[in-house]
Design a protein around this nucleic acid. Structure first.
Lengths: 292, 292
DNA sequence: CGCCGTTGTATCTATGCCGATACAACGACG
DNA sequence: CGTCGTTGTATCGGCATAGATACAACGGCG
């Protein structure tokens, strides 16, 4: 494809980069490109020359990956055409998984987010209630949902016949040192950031109140549309929410972003100034310990 | 803190690793740990010795980072205690941003997801309609929402007085080579994975139908609760959705995962076998090109 | 003024990863 | 049986990064 003069592991999405990790071995964009090239060329040698990188290195790299991720490439030497290599089914699953991670990263980089600073008011398991300028919001903290039986990873998949080589074994993954912000757990009184992805916020007609008991969306705010940044088919709607009076001095208006389709804007008849009701799930709200 | 015998950049979250990228310079867990150590020790020298790494390297690393991210550490030599270093406000913002990325990554690694294979039926801008075993679903493809004026990055922030050193300039970010799956754009007829995060799916009482015009959530499915994996305060509910009859042979049942709070389960009175209505936003649905 | 611990800066060395190269083993095919 | 292009395997050198070390500059403070 392009000129192979490029270096670097993987530019990936926007202003972030993500890689899978298993057993201490990273699987990054470079590895993904290698597997894809093997798939296309039908041989590791062909893939290496296509990518302009060393064949021997490519082979040892594949072996390193296979030590961590299991069989990825079925290699055969001798025979028709001198031999050749094909991707194992698990390699395709791995690539799919990598692409999904990449898509999620791209999404977090490109989808607007609302970040509110607050203090933890209550902690109950992996859920916490945070006191923010717009009132109490609840969200998730900590990395994992199910700590014990991890690797549960749902996967409805479907009628497709692919093997689901997902689980692997995980292997405890020793070192978890130096990340600073430990696991992500918070305690009452901690200063935290409340992150709300604009793609998680549902906009409702203010008049048409939904029966609160009929939905699992907990967080709720009322506000007025302040601005609509129209894209071709997707628009970012910003809603001004009046801060609650907490006696403090910090009573600036807060703007919450919501990403909705242009069609929905039409359907709801949204325009700046309109009163709307916002709603989003606690489980789509992430709590991040604040630096200071 | 721990013993500095560790190496490697940063194990980060679960089975993934992420880093920020600006101007070709990666900001990873190692850098985050360095900045945090500087903040704690009050000097780069102290931070380096605390982390068990070279002081000179730590300094040059900070300079490299500053070339890309702007001022991060205010250094002062001579004077009381011989000098010292303090984190600039933008460094705290950067750390917060890194932590948020980490949190999102950890979330995608630990939150169940539903992946459906389908084929693109229609593309309209960044939105696409995909034909899946359970009918047509719409979701986002491609990395960015606003391509032109990127770096728009909403940020309600709030009354806090922090400077928002977010925007930077981006700088086009040259190389976007070797990722294989280009940008993420799809075309009609493409085989794609439809990724639905369990934290995006809202569960509604089947009886209590919400006026479709009152919400911006587009995707809708009816099904029955098949299993509830209860966590302490957050549970994963799996809902079996009957496949639509498409004349094909692939008519296995599809299970969709939804992450909801235990409290919501109580409130809705959910139990296996109950009919429910699922709802989630098109903008919370990511389309990923399939490998083969 | 000298002490002190820090920030700057330069240089040498160790390490690890990658490309380059070379050679053996393999097995269908002509 | 020889050819062919591939998979294995080993070794060498280049290059980038990090650690180690050394020394100058700085500026409060005793």
């Amino acid at each position: 494809m392009g000129e192979p003069t490029d270096s670097g592991p993987a530019p990936a999405a926007g202003r972030g980069r993500a890689a899978l990790i298993e057993d201490g071995v990273e699987f990054d964009g470079r590895d993904a490109a290698l597997l894809r090239a093997v798939d296309a060329a039908g041989s590791v040698a062909g893939a290496a020359s296509e990518l302009g990188r060393s064949r021997a290195r490519a082979l040892t790299r594949i072996e390193t990956l296979e030590d961590a991720y299991g069989t990825l490439v079925e290699r055969r030497r001798g025979g028709e055409g001198g031999g050749g290599s094909r991707l194992a089914a698990s390699a395709r699953d791995l690539l799919d998984r990598y692409d999904r991670l990449q898509a999620v990263l791209a999404a977090t980089a490109s989808v607007p987010e609302t970040v509110l600073d607050g203090t933890v008011a209550a902690v109950d398991g992996e859920l916490a209630v945070v006191d923010t300028p717009v009132g109490e919001l609840s969200g998730l903290h900590g990395g994992t949902v199910d700590d014990e039986d991890a690797d549960d990873r749902a996967d409805g998949r479907d009628a497709d016949d692919r093997a689901d080589g997902r689980g692997a074994d995980d292997g405890a993954d020793g070192r978890d040192a130096d990340d600073g912000a430990d696991g992500g757990a918070v305690a009452v009184g901690d200063a935290v950031q409340v992150r709300i992805g604009a793609d998680a916020v549902t906009v409702n007609d203010a008049a048409n109140a939904v029966d609160p008991d009929a939905t699992s969306a907990r967080n709720r705010l009322a506000g007025r549309v302040s601005r609509i940044d129209s894209g071709e088919t997707v628009s970012t709607v910003r809603i001004v929410v009046e801060p609650v009076d907490r006696g403090g001095t910090d009573d600036a208006a807060v703007e919450v972003a919501a990403l909705i389709t242009a069609e929905s804007i039409d359907r709801l008849g949204l325009a700046p100034g309109d009163p709307v009701s916002l709603r989003w799930k606690a489980t789509a709200t992430r709590l991040v310990a604040q630096v200071e």
